[in-house]
């Protein structure tokens, strides 16, 4: 591919925009997944602590 062909900026723009959009998409999905998992772990941990307290109290 020779870099100084005409319209090269259009070609590069296409690839760059595609890369940027796909990276943003992947990042958003991964981040949301981590967030939900963190909340879920916190809730299950809290639940476990409460159950242990309840058992200890019996």
């Amino acid at each position: 591919m020779d870099l100084n062909a005409p319209h090269m900026n259009f070609i590069l723009a296409c690839y760059i925009i595609s890369a940027v959009v796909l990276v943003i998409l992947t990042a958003s999905i991964v981040i949301r997944s981590r967030q939900v998992e963190k909340k879920l772990d916190r809730l299950t941990a809290a639940g476990a602590r409460r159950r242990r307290k309840a058992d200890a109290g019996k």
Binding site: I29, V30, S33, V36, E37, L40, L43
Partner: peptide, 16 residues
């Protein structure tokens, strides 16, 4: 990955 997140989100909602 997104589907796993949705499943976890639903479990989270149920627990809440």
């Amino acid at each position: 990955l997104a589907l796993k997140t949705e499943v976890n989100a639903r479990k989270l909602r149920q627990m809440q």
